[in-house]
Simulated scan of single mutants.
Amino acid sequence: MAAGNGPWMALALLTLLAGLQTPALSEVSVQPNFKQDQFLGRWFTKGLASNATWFQEKKAKLSMCKSVVTAAEDGALNLTVTYFRDTQCITWSLLLEPTGTPGHYRYNKPKWGGNHELLVRETDYDQYAMFITRSTNGPDEGLFMAMLYTRSQDPVAKKELNEKFRSFAHSQGFTDEDIVFLHKIGKCIDDQ
């Protein structure tokens, strides 16, 4: 990530954002017939949406990161995120625990406090995935973010995917000012 983004990158995958009225958990759907095994592998964070003040201040400096999703025990997923910050590559990992609904996971990161959720709302597994993350209790209760992952840094259907994500973000209550499409910088996210 670009220099000075510090804590933002925790957001690149899973920090959650303030101020948005979110639907009750029971009202949020996940990808029908979600196939976890097809969701595994490498993804790139291509789009983010948030109306948090700090996000609005930093969104012009944000750049793409790489996430790798692998299977863990008992239906959980390991999520490893790599990004560029200052002059180095930063990597961190989370364990996404299943909730009993395919495509719906919980996670905890002591640095953030509270409990968080990730819900895969839509994916074709081969090109893109759109999901939301949010905090369900603790100091960040009610924080919310929408994300677009792509399998490629330069997706073939880039314009169509961007518009699909923009519509998705609008359906979650975000405005155009709340949405950013991230540029690639190559550092840390290209395979060696």
Rank of each mutant, 00 (worst) to 15 (best):
R151M: 04
V30C: 04
M1Y: 03
M64I: 10
G114S: 09
L13S: 13
A72G: 11
W8A: 12
L48S: 05
A3D: 12
P7F: 11
Y105T: 03
L143M: 05
D126N: 13
E57Q: 13
A3I: 09
S135A: 15
T53P: 02
A24C: 03
E122W: 06
K61N: 15
E27F: 06
N137Y: 02
N5L: 14
H116A: 11
S67F: 00
T15E: 06
N78W: 02
T87Q: 07
A72D: 15
T101Y: 03
I185N: 14
E117S: 10
R121L: 08
L17E: 12
Y125T: 12
S93N: 09
E57K: 13
A72C: 02
T101C: 00
V69R: 00
G186Y: 07
D86P: 04
G186T: 13
Q31F: 08
H116W: 11
W112P: 01
T99L: 03
F131G: 12
T87A: 02
D190H: 03
V68F: 00
Q56L: 13
D176L: 04
P110M: 00
G142S: 03
F168H: 05
F181E: 12
L79I: 12
D178T: 05
K158C: 01
R166W: 01
L77R: 02
T22Q: 14
W54T: 11
T82W: 03
A60G: 15
F131A: 13
E57A: 13
A157Y: 05
L11H: 09
E122M: 05
Y125P: 10
Y107D: 05
R134E: 05
L13G: 09
C89K: 02
D124S: 08
R121G: 10
I132P: 00
K61V: 01
N162W: 11
P102I: 09
K59F: 04
T91F: 02
V30R: 01
P139R: 03
D176K: 00
L62Y: 06
E57Y: 10
F131D: 07
L40H: 06
Y149N: 13
K109D: 12
T91L: 00
P98S: 03
K109T: 10
S167M: 06
G6Q: 11
V69G: 00
T80W: 00
Y83L: 07
N137E: 15
L25R: 06
T91G: 01
L118F: 13
A71H: 01
T136R: 01
R85C: 04
C188A: 07
K35H: 11
P98V: 09
L40C: 07
